[in-house]
Design a protein around this nucleic acid. Structure first.
Lengths: 121, 121
DNA sequence: GAGTGTAGGTTCCTTTTGTGAACGGAGAAT
DNA sequence: ATTCTCCGTTCACAAAAGGAACCTACACTC
């Protein structure tokens, strides 16, 4: 993504101002990782390393997504330690309001994407 | 994406078999366009050109996504005309079950991503 | 029977994103 | 004084998306 502070009109920006609220929501979570980071927040995770271990996402992308989620107001960044400076990322109200969407996806995934054990022959 | 018939283990495939149903759902809709195609189906659209015009997506990506959604069983492809051969893409039950997720996103988008008129000065 | 239009793609090339591994810096622990 | 943990950043390369043109097949009209 890397479009922090790049004012070029892209498909992403077009989506963000689309007439349809679903499209505008997709401009926030329309990628592989963003909503999974939010899910991890719901599960109590709050630190960089926790997300990284949980998701197996590259550190680069995680860094970018966290920055973006904070900019968008979905997450809040709070120092939990000065010296060394460390931050936690926690859900704002805007972030918590993803709960119904996550529940919808959880139900869908449970029903339509059953786990297939890797054929223990 | 272009991973139709490419059996390489990628992050996408890992997600598809994740322990978490949300992650498995994201392996299906974790990109910019897929869920918007599904939304268009809910709105009654069913043909290639309709999706293309509605979304402004490149034909290439649209072609790929439709193929994938049919493979995954989210959409059904039916010939509505032989000679010339033409298809409609319509929701299966698996696809219709995205309704709660879409409603969740619609509500979130309405509440948290208000439309900003482009400053009609 | 040549030209125009429509539907549904595919091809080709460029730009944008993501991946993976390594590097860094600032304490904390041993 | 070295090692470890946390939170990133940098770099080189791979994958995906974007944009425009092209193709096939039929229908319509002149």
């Amino acid at each position: 993504m890397e479009r922090v502070s790049q004012p070029k009109a892209s498909k992403w920006d077009e989506l963000a101002t689309d007439w349809c609220p679903v499209a505008r929501a997709m401009s926030v979570i329309g990628d592989r990782w963003t909503l999974l980071i939010v899910r991890d927040c719901f599960l109590g995770k709050s630190r960089f390393e926790e997300f990284q271990k949980s998701l197996g996402i590259t550190r680069h992308v995680l860094s970018d997504r966290l920055k973006r989620l904070v900019e968008l107001g979905v997450l809040e960044r709070n120092a939990y330690s000065k010296r060394p400076l460390r931050y936690t990322y926690t859900l704002s109200e805007k972030g918590r309001d993803f709960a119904p969407t996550l529940i919808g996806l959880k139900d869908w995934g449970k029903k339509h994407m059953p786990i297939r054990k890797p054929a223990a022959v």
